[in-house]
Amino acid sequence: MANTKNASPKANKQTKVKTKWTSRQKSECVWGWAFILPTMIGLIVLNIIPIFQTIYQSFFKTGDFGRGNIFIGIENYKTILSDPEVWQALVNTFKYAVVEVPFSIAIALVLAVLLNRKMHGRAAYRTIFFLPMVAAPAAVAMVWRWLYNSEFGLLNNIFGTKINWISNPSIAVFSVAVIGVWSILGYNMVLFLAGLQDIPKDYYEASSIDGASGIYQFFHITIPLLSPTIFFVSVTRIIGGLQVFDLIFMVMDRNNPALYKTESLVYLFYQYSFVNNNKGLGSAIVVFLLVIIMIITVIQMRAQKLVYYN
């Protein structure tokens, strides 16, 4: 039945295709280009050309208002690579990512597993955990700054501590990373919940009959079968973490003594390009960031094969 139903239009189509092939191909070409044209023009003007402009700009010393740019070769790169502030920013960025990424993933994974069952309040928990995703980062940063306030803040007053959460240079970057974990937790969790739907329930039932505990199942069924999702989330979070800006910009005052130990690469990019108005140097920093992210992307592509085929 199914066969005959499929066969007749197909045969029909083939006879038509032979005669109308070129006209159909032609119309697909015209419509295809018409459909992608707005996107492609925008993409080329707004994104593709700017990539090369930024790279080009990074070889120039910025004059007044873009006029009088002077070609200085790799001087900007020499400047940033010999600037301890840039290396410190790179270290800060990695420190931020090293806290934000593993913690936000590990906690989100546990929450996803706990929520991946029929239970009361499941939707409510999910709604609450995801809430920071729809809050403006500027507002989030401000309220955390207030919570962290060393004199009047909730944290120090509730716990009876006297910690300078965001002005002590040795811990400030981690305090900011905690805000990052809090902000992104629900997002990661929802991605894991989606991944968990794809693991067949039979695996759990079979191992339960064999007497496996929940924790055993977590490490021997959930983690291995969820590894593609875990890998994907890790990579996107690492790349996102390396681009941290909003939180640092909002939480750290210009005269905060810990600023030097918390400013990220993108924060420096913003400062150089739009506060000090040195767009050449700013461009060099963002190209530096591009190179780092490209290296991570290549490592990711290599590693992907291991994750999916093991």
Partner: peptide, 15 residues
Amino acid sequence: FQMMVPGQIFIIPQY
């Protein structure tokens, strides 16, 4: 390609 590069790279030329 656009999706792979960090978004900050577009900002100066866009500005």
